[in-house]
Amino acid sequence: MKKFLMPALAMAVALTAGSVAAKADVLDKVKEKGVLVVGVKTDYKPFGFRSPDGSIIGIEPELAADVAKRLKVKLELVPVISSNRMEFLKQGKIDLMIATMSDKPERREQVQFIEPLYYSDAVNILMSKKVKVTAWKQLKDAPICGSTGTFYNKPVESEYGAKIVAFDGTEKPLAALKQGNCVGFLYDQSLVQAKLTEPEWSADYAMPLPSIMETPWAMAVAKGEDRFAKFMSDVTKDWMKSGAIVALEKKYGIAPTAYSQRMHAQFK
């Protein structure tokens, strides 16, 4: 019995190993299957969110659709969250990740980033329209609401002299801003812009200052997928050249970021 079992087991192991070896080139796998599986966010408007019919829409799903079109394959979107997106990529459950992932050294060790980085978040202020400012220096002694624990509260206070009133989360500082406890809300630019797509905020608030402290976002593929990474790198450059990302930002109602505009100018 054992004599029979051992070869069978060895064969099973060889089979699994074979499938791992075959997985080495994801680009071939995608073309063979005719499906590109992309991991995107579903709770990050306007980058990846749900429409009431359940489908996933937004800037990142549109980028994913463009990649699938270039590969002449169908697109399958898989919802990911921050805690599982890199795991899914390593497992091979998704072929490509476009999921608002900011650039961190420890992440670069785990997955293959696509250069140039396709997007960048930054820090900005959702400012009351009653306040007329054009430069950060003008914020001296201005009361600004912030969120506790963000890395930019202190630098903004020490460099520009703003008085940060910190609350936890994002809802409390936003409520304080509405009640007039402060003149602006200092936070991630992506959230500030998302708020400005809502009529509730766009009527009395704006984003008059240039963004500071850019934190780029990266698309990623699994480690070792050099051919696919090269392909994606070319696609990204092409997006920057054609201004596709700037166009998508406009389509989804947010002001193009300084990063997207700069990249567009650089590659044009």
């Binding site: 579903t42 709770d43 990050y44 408007k45 969110f49 749900r50 429409s51 009431p52 359940g54 919802p79 990911v80 969250i81 805690s83 599982n84 994002t170 809802e171 998302a194 708020k195 797509t197 809502e198 509730e200």
Partner: peptide, 19 residues
């Protein structure tokens, strides 16, 4: 990350702009 009711509720709230 399974798209069950609670996940979809959070998604819906995000799509409504976090009102």
């Amino acid at each position: 990350g399974v798209s069950e009711m609670l996940t979809l509720t959070a998604d819906a709230l995000a799509a409504e702009g976090g009102r």
